[in-house]
Design a protein around this nucleic acid. Structure first.
Length: 283
DNA sequence: ATCTGGACCTGAACGC
DNA sequence: TGCGTTCAGGTCCAGA
């Protein structure tokens, strides 16, 4: 599912339930997701207080008072459900356990956090908070696209000489961390760049223009996620996907939304994944 | 060093 | 109703 905006939305929804609270009981219902869980994960989590809930790229990081950080990744199909009644803020009854509820946290407040992931491309791990930057999954990540380290000079240089299509380059988490298939398509549309264009052959000025396009794309999506968060209490407590309308993603055959453009959105396959773009205004 | 394609896994949607 | 095929928001890894 989840690209940076969805993960950030999950983090924001989870923060009021987890930050400052203790995991009274952690239940781990299977030995692994994409990889085996760390040794004794349930025991190491049970009783720990969550000090901060953070995000790096598509990873949610929970810093615990035990000195460890819990890393969570939602993979393609991961979802998180909040249920229970914590201080009157969350009022969903605990639903019947569902298939693929792999990890469950019962917080001291009474809230329950359930991690469900049918495809099991997700992951969890524990590491010392002090050295977590060096964790294999985090060490090689490029800059956060909404942070100060992601700027025009960085992206221009990172794409210099690359022969790969810009679509693939922007999916490379070492160049910029957190973009996935949807938001790369959307950002390229905003920048009017064709997804098949070789990264290193895009003019420096156009490469630079990608930076604000990426930022705006993600910022708008996070805003849409935020508005969905305001509703989830009345709904079912599920964090993750939210209603968001895309300009190109999933719109094959539909008209381009750009003012004055009469193009029709096209779908192509690049390195096994769908790319959507307007052949008229993306070059 | 780069780049591509296969692998991991389940479920939904679709055509017959 | 059932069966086969295709597709899906990620990313690691082997091999060219």
């Amino acid at each position: 599912m989840p690209e940076l905006p969805e993960v950030e939305t999950v983090r924001r929804g989870l923060a009021p339930v987890m930050e400052g609270d203790r995991i009274a009981v952690a239940r781990v219902n299977r030995p692994d997701l994409r990889w085996p869980f760390p040794e004794r994960m349930a025991e190491r989590l049970t009783g720990a207080r969550v000090e901060r809930l953070e995000r790096r790229s598509k990873y949610i990081l929970a810093a615990l008072d035990s000195g460890e950080t819990l890393l969570m990744h939602l993979g393609m199909s991961g979802r998180i459900l909040i249920s229970g009644d914590a201080l009157g803020r969350f009022v969903h009854d605990h639903p019947a356990p569902e298939k693929h509820d792999h990890v469950v946290f019962d917080m001291a407040s009474g809230a329950r956090v359930t991690f469900n992931d049918p495809r099991r491309f997700g992951a969890m791990d524990l590491m010392p908070t002090e050295t977590r930057e060096a964790h294999a999954l985090l060490a090689a990540l490029g800059p956060e696209p909404l942070g100060n380290a992601f700027h025009e000079a960085h992206l221009v240089a990172a794409l210099e000489g690359r022969n790969t299509p810009i679509k693939a380059a922007l999916l490379d988490q070492k160049i910029v961390a957190g973009l996935g298939n949807i938001y790369v398509c959307e950002a390229l549309y905003r920048s009017r760049i064709h997804p098949g264009r070789r990264a290193g052959r895009i003019s420096r000025a156009r490469r630079a223009r990608l930076v604000p396009a990426i930022r705006d794309t993600l910022t708008d999506a996070i805003a849409a996620g935020g508005s969905s968060l305001r509703d989830y209490r009345q709904a079912d407590g599920e964090l993750g996907y939210f209603q968001h309308s895309f300009d190109v993603y999933g719109r094959e055959g539909l008209p381009c939304r750009r003012d004055g453009c009469d193009g029709v959105i096209r779908r192509i396959v690049q390195s096994g994944r769908s790319s959507f773009y307007c052949p008229r205004c993306q070059r």
